[in-house]
């Protein structure tokens, strides 16, 4: 059963194609990884799927509904959630408040109730706070809950973004390099966390440069190079694929 279907997505910037005709599908509980060298178009693909960029061509279908170029806040209502490669943290808010922001759709109500501090407003906020604290515990940040988010380390912020994205109780979760900047232990924790989330039935779309992690947890891998899908399949198939090896070797030679 397909939850998210990407059909021929493409976009160009100033006449240069950043992503070309990319298609694949994600089912509930499945971890699909998108890999490829730097600049291959992975983040751009995520931005199109999550409504941040308007695709130049192609479709995004979520749960049978065409959601192409739909505003991100409406996609959130339909169960899509994501993290960002270049962190998008609410810097001056506490770690707890950052997580609570992820509960917006569940906890927000009439402004007037909030203005008057009505019991209904407090009840909504309290329910969200319980959930948020539990999530922070899950990503190992419960002791930093009251700290200002801007003061956390890079690795902690990556986990905070996961907690915030999880707060939406998403059906499909897009993770853009969740383990970047994390040490081996932290990477393994994130690895377990992602597997756990998938096991609970969430469809996961993952971009990650840590190949060991990708090979370990992915059900399916899509390989991009210069904006095009050059291969896809299960980890074993993809890692043997000559085009993939060439793309990565080429990238490594280029990087010196």
């Amino acid at each position: 059963m397909t939850l998210l279907s990407i059909e021929g997505l493409g976009i160009s910037f100033g006449g240069i194609a950043a992503v070309k005709n990319v298609s694949f599908r994600v089912s509930p509980g499945e971890i699909v990884s998108v890999i490829g060298p730097n600049g291959a178009g992975k983040t751009t693909l995520f931005n199109m799927i999550s409504g941040v960029y308007q695709p130049g061509s192609g479709k995004v279908v979520l749960n049978g509904e065409d959601v192409t170029a739909m505003s991100p806040h409406l996609l959130a209502r339909r169960g899509m959630s994501r993290t960002f490669q270049n962190l998008q943290i609410f810097q001056t808010m506490s770690v707890l408040e950052n997580t609570l922001a992820g509960y917006h759709l569940q906890e927000s109500g009439p402004v007037l109730a909030d203005l008057l501090n009505l019991p209904s407003s407090r009840r909504r906020a309290r329910a969200a706070e319980e959930g948020a604290r539990a999530l922070l515990k899950r990503v190992g940040l419960e002791r930093a809950a009251e700290r200002e988010a801007g003061s956390l380390s890079y690795g902690s912020l990556k986990r905070l973004e996961i907690a915030r994205a999880m707060a939406l109780k998403p059906k499909v979760l897009l993770l853009d390099e969740p383990a970047a900047g994390c040490n081996a232990v932290e990477t393994e924790e994130i690895d377990h966390l992602i597997a756990e989330i998938a096991a609970s039935g969430v469809a996961i779309l993952l971009v990650e440069h840590d190949m060991k992690m990708v090979m370990r947890i992915s059900n399916h891998i899509v390989v991009l190079d210069h904006g095009e899908k050059i291969a896809e399949g299960d980890p074993a198939t993809v890692s043997r694929d000559p085009a993939v090896i060439a793309a990565y070797l080429g990238a490594e030679h280029a990087a010196g």
Binding site: V52, S81, Q88, F90, A101
Partner: peptide
Amino acid sequence: ALHGSEIAARTVG
């Protein structure tokens, strides 16, 4: 939140 990051604010709904 929207002050901190509009894009993140939109993606949380």
